[in-house]
Design a protein around this nucleic acid. Structure first.
Lengths: 365, 365
DNA sequence: TTGAAAGCGCTAACAA
DNA sequence: TTGTTAGCGCTTTCAA
């Protein structure tokens, strides 16, 4: 074994080999391996099982899928696997899928619509039984862009050729028309609860570190925050756009930290945790204390949030619920592909997790 | 379109439909779609392309793979996709694979050998052309455990039935015998360079936050650190085992922070970044200053490291190099499956990234 | 209870 | 340059 690497799999046994060795028909082999649709005598079953073991037989999933006309695999398209929130969500989805006997193939669009489209296309060709899609980019009115196919993901998915659920955010057709099922949490409420928390703490000069203007879910969080402020007759004192990464959080914070105390926001509401972490970092570098000089909130409650310095107050999304709901929805569609049911939308509650990056406004600044 | 969801894919066109509509043979359709192996007249090519567009034809990758006896897909088995380091590595591998026309199917073993074995088995059945494997668990002498198949991943992979590369760490057969190619960085050197950095800063009471004793790569880092200390006639003042997660880093740090200053380590060398981040968090909670009261080093240089508070001194692994080397090795094996070449091992250099979580030992504590 | 055989959608060798 | 056709490995209907 050591020294040489001859790949035994290159000449691996087929079901016919098993049948021959066991002295039964090919059909019989199938029956024992699949536990049906027919029974097999004790004797033959043993012989088959023995032959399988001796030959190290491994069923060819490709052949099986071709014949069966389904693959038992689900495609999961992520916008950015480096983001811990998606890593969490993806893990939850995989677990839920495994419980139902599905394997999941995940791909990372890396926030690139062309890449996303290519990957969706590849999954469709792979004949996945269903697609779980966290859209990379909410481009609002037009699904343009994309190189390889001359079109973005919308070209392949509207209308969806196979059962599809969007998770975590909704991408609609021009005019806000839904074209597939959606499972997401209430982004508007999340933005609102974060803002209300800051308001309750006495902050008045609140700034927001938003996402790209093209991302609907980020805008919804922003809208929620603004609505809460408006009820107090307040406006955001500043708003900057980031790209959801640490660096953009740090960059925005650099700007705010450079301001004179009287001009500086008292609190910054960040649209995701990564950017909030960037803010924490830049504030510390600049010698600003959080929450003493600046309160900061995040969004997502990634695992690191509670180990941030200081631990981050954030809005937690119900990751498990999102995952199981997405799977439920998808499996239902797979089971009833012909049912002409209108796109469904399920919305989940979000929860504020108060930690130590926020504090009551200091009396004197 | 709005309102109803009839899955067009359920009745999608086949290549024969295209042939019929274009008024050519099935073979001709293949030739134009695959760009070979034969040429096709301008006229027929146009007709085929038009028919493809009109029918929304999507080649069935399953059927193609069955016939072609290869899938152009590579399997990537990760121990834990929630770990940002693996997310980085996986991204680099996907990119490299895409450049060579391979799609990659990634699965997350979640540090569970049984799950890992099941996933490897599933990939083998899926007929991936090659496997890139970051073993979840270095169990050293015996590959036991695993529920579903009654065996761990070693049962399926030693010897490897298809071209396989281990990346980032090496899992060998009992007796240290290699059974497949491996691409990794020099963990011993990495541990050493981190320790030497601390030593150069004047630290003498150095503790280590190690990984599980079963993980060879973690032990190698530890060995490197110890070797460096020994050259200074020093020993680790303490060593604790963590599980690579934030929480275990924080837990270990709790312990150290509770010690009287004279007993407390002056520096903590952590075997990965996540645990180092946990240490930073706990130290801050306890009011210990880093690096004033305690210097901390990590390992991996995950994206967050430079945004930690304070920015983390760490050992960077050459993620891009690892990824391209792994792919190169694998593709070479795939191209020459019959060549009986001994397992290869490629080792890469590692680099210390000095940031602000380490500082010279304060004169007076 | 069993075996034979018809394909699933595709590629490529072969014949024209 | 083109069409015909034999499978790839499997499931399952049909007939025995």
């Amino acid at each position: 074994m050591e020294g040489k690497l001859p790949y035994t799999g290159c000449v691996s046994a087929t079901r016919d080999d098993v049948a021959q060795r066991a002295g039964v028909s090919a059909a019989t082999v199938s029956y024992v391996l699949n536990g049906g649709p027919r029974g097999v005598s004790e004797d033959k079953r043993d012989r088959v099982l023995r032959a399988v073991a001796e030959l190290g037989y491994r069923p060819n999933a490709i052949a099986r899928s071709l014949r069966a006309r389904h693959t038992s695999i689900l495609g999961l398209v992520l916008p950015d696997s480096a983001n811990p929130y998606f890593a969490q969500l993806s893990r939850a989805i995989e677990d839920a899928a495994a419980e139902h006997g599905y394997q999941v193939v995940v791909s990372n669009a890396a926030d690139d619509p062309a890449r996303e489209a290519a990957q969706i296309e590849a999954m469709l060709r792979l004949q996945v039984d269903g697609l779980i899609w966290i859209p990379a980019d909410i481009r609002g009115e037009r699904g343009e862009r994309g190189e390889r196919d001359g079109a973005g993901p919308m070209a392949a998915l509207a209308p969806p050729p196979i059962p599809t659920v969007q998770v975590d955010r909704e991408l609609t057709l021009p005019g806000g028309i839904s074209f597939c099922d959606v499972v997401e949490s209430d982004h508007v409420a999340g933005g609102r609860v974060a803002a209300e928390h800051l308001l309750a703490l006495g902050h008045r000069r609140i700034a927001c570190l938003a996402g790209p203007a093209t991302h609907l879910h980020a805008c919804q969080r922003l809208d929620g925050a603004r609505a809460a402020l408006r009820e107090h007759d307040l406006e955001l004192v500043d708003m900057r756009h980031g790209d959801f990464g640490y660096a953009s959080g740090a960059a925005a914070a650099e700007h705010w930290c450079a301001l004179a105390p009287a001009l500086r926001p008292q609190a910054v509401l960040c649209i995701n945790d990564a950017m909030a972490l960037g803010v924490l970092s830049a504030a510390a570098e600049r010698g600003l204390r959080v929450p003493g000089d600046l309160s900061v909130t995040g969004y997502d409650d990634v695992p690191l949030a509670r180990y941030a310095v200081p631990p981050l107050t954030t809005v937690a999304q119900p990751v498990q619920l999102l995952a199981t709901a997405a799977l439920e929805t998808l499996l239902d569609r797979i089971a009833n592909p012909e049912a002409p049911v209108a796109p469904r939308r399920r919305l989940f509650h979000v929860q504020l997790v108060v930690r130590r990056s926020t504090a009551p406004l200091a009396r004197m600044e």
